[in-house]
């Protein structure tokens, strides 16, 4: 919340400063922001609705059941896959990971889950493709998935 507040203050401060320099350019900037915002708004709404519906059918308790037990390589891959297809709000992710550890999940599994959860986005792929192109989206997500497993395995060795 604090960071959000700081970002807002920075944005407004920059805008005020911009107006002292050139009001013509500042109005142009506001227009650009408005048009972009309106263009992206349906995507944002769509993604949020999709995430909400998806998570309600696969609630945290179900994830806990799958990732909580004894660690196997299948479980690590499963964790990475679950992280890929799900999008969980930041507010829930880390407490969930903490409770998974408490219920017996290994750090390896949690590392795989957290890394793909944050870096690989299945639900958001259409937006990523629209804005960054198919190739970047494909390689970025594919590589992030593999590196998530590598990170998880190394953490398993270290801890």
């Amino acid at each position: 919340m604090l960071v959000a507040l700081i970002i807002n203050i920075i944005a407004i401060g920059t805008l005020v400063y911009s107006f002292t320099q050139s009001s013509r350019k500042s109005i142009q900037a506001l227009k650009t922001a408005l048009v972009k915002g309106l263009k992206l708004a349906p995507w944002m709404v769509g993604i949020i609705v999709l995430i909400g519906i998806a998570l309600s059918f696969v609630p945290p308790e179900v994830i806990e059941r799958y990732l909580g037990g004894e660690m196997t390589i299948y479980q690590v891959v499963a964790a990475a896959l679950i992280g890929t297809v799900s999008m969980i709000p930041n507010l829930i992710t880390l407490p969930l990971a903490g409770s998974l550890i408490d219920s017996g999940a290994s750090y390896t599994t949690i590392a795989a889950f957290l890394t793909t959860l944050t870096m690989v986005g299945f639900v958001t792929m259409p937006l990523e493709i629209k804005l960054l192109g198919k190739k970047i989206t494909f390689w970025r997500n594919l590589l992030a998935f593999f590196f998530a497993i590598i990170i998880a395995v190394i953490i398993g060795v270290l801890m």
Binding site: A11, I12, S18, A33, L91
Partner: peptide, 24 residues
């Protein structure tokens, strides 16, 4: 709905200043 509310809050707080900074 609860999840959507959490996410919307986050996006509503972050997205406008990000757009504004992008415009600037």
């Amino acid at each position: 709905l609860e999840v959507m509310r959490d996410y919307s809050m986050e996006v509503a707080l972050i997205f406008p200043p990000v757009l504004l900074l992008m415009g600037l």
